[in-house]
Amino acid sequence: MTNQICVRCQTSTDKPVLVRDEHGATGPGRRHYACSVCAPHFPRQLSPMAAFEMARAPGNEYAPP
């Protein structure tokens, strides 16, 4: 993998860790990388389908009736 810039400390890293994967509805998405020191500071990201299923779960105030 090529060098990437860490989104937290802004340093170049040769072992980047993917911490966020943004999906684009009308175009390409975007990937955010962090260095191995900063990566544990980011919460684990849910897949889009897991987030959708959680939103529709019973008891969620935003779930459709």
Rank of each mutant, 00 (worst) to 15 (best):
M1P: 13
M1V: 12
M1S: 12
M1C: 11
M1E: 12
T2D: 13
T2Y: 11
N3H: 08
N3Q: 07
N3A: 14
Q4T: 03
Q4A: 15
I5Y: 10
I5S: 10
C6H: 09
C6K: 11
V7C: 15
V7F: 14
R8K: 10
R8P: 00
R8H: 01
R8W: 01
R8N: 01
C9D: 15
C9H: 11
Q10L: 12
Q10F: 10
Q10P: 00
Q10V: 01
Q10Y: 11
T11N: 14
T11H: 12
T11W: 01
S12W: 05
S12Q: 11
S12P: 00
T13K: 10
T13D: 05
T13Y: 06
T13W: 05
D14G: 04
D14H: 09
K15C: 01
K15D: 07
K15V: 10
P16R: 14
V17W: 03
V19A: 01
V19Q: 04
V19G: 07
R20F: 09
R20W: 14
R20N: 08
R20V: 05
R20D: 09
D21T: 06
D21I: 00
D21V: 03
E22D: 08
E22M: 13
E22V: 05
H23W: 06
H23I: 13
A25C: 02
A25P: 00
A25R: 05
T26K: 05
T26H: 06
G27P: 00
G27Y: 01
P28C: 03
P28V: 08
P28N: 13
P28H: 08
G29I: 07
G29Y: 06
G29S: 09
R31W: 02
R31F: 01
R31D: 01
R31L: 06
R31Y: 05
H32E: 13
H32Y: 15
Y33G: 06
C35M: 09
C35E: 05
C35L: 09
S36N: 13
V37C: 06
C38M: 03
C38L: 05
C38K: 05
C38P: 01
P40T: 08
P40M: 08
H41A: 13
H41S: 15
H41T: 11
F42V: 03
F42D: 04
F42T: 02
F42A: 04
P43W: 09
P43F: 08
P43R: 12
P43G: 14
P43N: 15
Q45C: 14
Q45Y: 14
Q45I: 11
L46G: 05
S47P: 04
S47D: 07
S47Y: 08
P48E: 01
P48Q: 08
P48C: 04
M49E: 13
M49S: 13
M49Q: 13
A50E: 15
A50P: 00
A51G: 01
A51K: 06
A51W: 00
F52M: 10
F52K: 11
F52P: 00
E53A: 15
E53F: 08
E53P: 05
E53S: 10
E53C: 14
M54Q: 14
A55L: 15
A55R: 15
A55G: 07
R56L: 09
R56Q: 08
R56W: 02
A57Y: 13
P58F: 02
P58S: 06
P58G: 07
P58A: 09
G59V: 03
G59T: 03
N60A: 02
N60H: 10
E61A: 06
E61N: 00
Y62S: 01
Y62D: 01
Y62E: 02
Y62G: 00
A63D: 03
P64G: 07
P64I: 04
P65C: 00
